[in-house]
């Protein structure tokens, strides 16, 4: 699967994304967020960013949304366009 990071989160992590296999036991966007935050250090930004948002296959979803291998998952702060 592909995981993408945007804006302040991308800066905090020093990465715009990564390819990874769906980790064992991870079935939702929230579980994936927690799995990545468990790397510690800068990755704690995933649980510390206020009102973090996520998308699966380019659709904004909640943290209870299902994820499967092959999905494109994105994590980002609240949007500020317009």
């Amino acid at each position: 699967m592909k995981v993408l990071y945007f804006a302040s989160l991308r800066e905090a992590l020093g990465a715009s994304g990564e390819e990874m296999a769906l980790p064992d036991g991870v079935g939702s966007t929230g579980a994936l967020r927690d799995h990545l935050a468990a790397r510690g250090g800068a990755w704690l930004a995933l649980t510390q960013t206020k009102n973090l948002r996520c998308a699966v296959n380019q659709r904004m979803v909640g943290f209870d949304a299902a994820v499967a291998d092959g999905d494109e998952v994105a994590f980002f702060p609240p949007v500020t366009g317009g």
């Binding site: 302040s8 904004m60 994105a74 980002f76 702060p77 609240p78 949007v79 500020t80 366009g81 317009g82």
Partner: peptide
């Protein structure tokens, strides 16, 4: 657009 489109 302000709250749903992914711009930062």
């Amino acid at each position: 657009l302000k709250t749903q489109a992914p711009f930062w």
